[in-house]
């Protein structure tokens, strides 16, 4: 227990690091995912193909492989990024594929008449998508996007393996230093619960708030 109590501030910095990593990566993943989903439903052939290729390749590649590839492989190719940036880029790229597929399913769930009506009013594809289809699509996928966010909190732990000291990294270091792995682990589990449970509640509240009333 002392292993945890003596290191509470260290844990706090770990939690903070996990939070900032998650939020930064989510911002990247969300923007990327929406753009890629728009490409996939769009009329431009090469963009459709490029978006589909990106989703299929990155989604089927383990996150750990992406981390190792970007951390050890990219410097060989002459591109060296700071560790933290690498972590945000990898997490955004990986989560972005899931966001893209989720948003695409939301777009497909919007009645075709909505887009047809907007088109017949003379709106362009981009106007139809941004002004009519996406606002409705995003509302329907709040819950699955929330699950992705919570999965991202957990996935961000892999950043520890390239040297970002977030919650899992903190736990590992305290475990090694105090040899009390059980206490360190239980504290980390509690901390993760404190992050994921409120996130779940917030997602539920958001879902109720933006739901389309029919």
């Amino acid at each position: 227990m002392e292993a945890v109590l003596d290191n509470l501030d260290f844990y706090a910095s770990g939690v903070l690091s996990t939070v900032t990593l998650t939020v930064a990566s989510w911002a990247g993943a969300f923007v990327l995912g929406v753009v890629v989903a728009a490409f996939r439903v769009g009329p431009v052939g090469p963009l459709r193909a490029a978006a589909a290729t990106y989703v299929e390749l990155v989604r089927n590649c383990p996150l750990a492989v992406l981390f190792v590839l970007f951390f050890f492989g990219l410097p060989d190719a002459g591109l060296t990024l700071p560790t933290y940036t690498t972590a945000v880029v990898v997490l955004s790229l990986y989560t972005g594929t899931y966001v893209a597929e989720t948003v695409r399913s939301g777009i497909n769930a919007v009645a075709a008449g909505q887009a047809e009506a907007a088109r017949s009013l003379g709106l362009s594809f981009t106007q139809v998508l941004a002004g009519v289809v996406l606002p409705q699509a995003l509302r329907t996928v709040v819950a699955p996007l929330g699950s992705l966010f919570i999965a991202l909190i957990r996935n961000s732990s892999i950043a520890f393996t390239i040297g970002v000291v977030e919650l899992t990294g903190t736990t590992s270091q305290i475990g090694n230093r105090t040899a009390d792995y059980t206490a360190a682990f239980l504290a980390a589990t509690t901390a993760y619960l404190l992050l994921t449970l409120p996130s779940g509640i917030a997602v539920d509240a958001l879902e109720r708030r933006v739901a389309v009333k029919r």
Partner: peptide, 15 residues
């Protein structure tokens, strides 16, 4: 479902 698989793996390996 609450915590990362990596954390569980590290615990099993080192704890």
């Amino acid at each position: 479902r609450a915590f990362p698989l990596l954390l569980l793996l590290l615990f099993l390996a080192f704890g």
